[in-house]
Design a protein around this nucleic acid. Structure first.
Ligand SMILES: [Zn+2]
Ligand SMILES: [Zn+2]
Ligand SMILES: [Zn+2]
Ligand SMILES: [Zn+2]
Lengths: 136, 136
DNA sequence: CAATATTTGCAACCGACTTGCAAATAATGC
DNA sequence: GCATTATTTGCAAGTCGGTTGCAAATATTG
């Protein structure tokens, strides 16, 4: 399935910017911030548009958002099983303490945690810190 | 040991604002953002001062910083074993998806994760999402 | 109490995030 | 293809958290 069909399947109209951003995310080994996308995009697009494209991708289950160590949102493409209804991104993330880059890691079995009385658990995420290959 | 001695032990001068912020963190069941602190403080202080107080607490090992789901820093008081040299806050954190509040949880044994070749792991943190007692 | 080092408040700036609105554009049906 | 409609885009502008430089205020030292 090409990306036009992919966008359509997730209920989004096909535009040049969306196609370009989608490819960018798919071909990146790391999660990209909005400004990363803005800088890497072959064509140029307004910041607000990129903000909304990334937001739409997240809503549609095409990309998931990870906060980096500075609290800036970074996006990575989703597994094919993600949809508008539900994301299935249970994998861990690696945060480089030097350059700040964020990488998706494999799925991991997470330990059970005891929460205070009355609290309801939904999902858990593991965040790993360290140095990436370039910085180590 | 009272808080004056505690500040002194961590190499910080004793000021009214620092004492008040320290008590606030110690008596809070949740992690507090800078603006939480500003709102809850009995006395009033400039927001830059609070920023620097929290920053100093983190450097000194008196408080640790957790990013909430919106990428805003929240602070919680540290275990007595934390110091300028090293933090020992290996516990998990609970993030309420409704109100956004962050709570420190117990220590957990974390699973080993495989990272890409050349990457160096340092620390890992577990983030649990769900509803807190008030929101559930 | 004087001398010194630190902390505070203020003004100001930055970057990320967000919204409203009008113009441009994609999808739909003839 | 062409008109109609719903969506997307760009721009202006505003919000908020985080951050710095500097001078005034204050804590510590002796
Ligand atoms: Zn997903
Ligand atoms: Zn991921
Ligand atoms: Zn600590
Ligand atoms: Zn904590």
């Amino acid at each position: 399935m090409d990306n036009k069909a992919l966008l359509h399947k997730h209920g989004l109209r096909i535009t040049d910017t969306r196609l370009a951003v989608l490819s960018l995310l798919q071909n990146s080994s790391k999660a990209l911030s909005q400004s990363d996308v803005e800088r890497s995009l072959p064509q140029q697009a307004d910041r607000v548009t990129l903000f909304r494209v990334l937001q739409a991708f997240e809503d549609a289950g095409l990309a998931h958002k990870v906060m980096d160590a500075h609290g800036v949102a970074r996006y990575a493409s989703c597994a094919p099983t993600c949809s508008t209804e539900q994301h299935q991104d249970s994998h861990a993330h690696f945060h480089c303490t030097q350059c700040g880059d964020v990488y998706c890691l494999e799925d991991v079995e997470l330990p059970k945690v005891k929460v205070p009385k009355g609290f309801k658990q939904q999902e858990s995420h593991l965040e790993v810190e360290g140095r990436c290959a370039a910085c180590a």
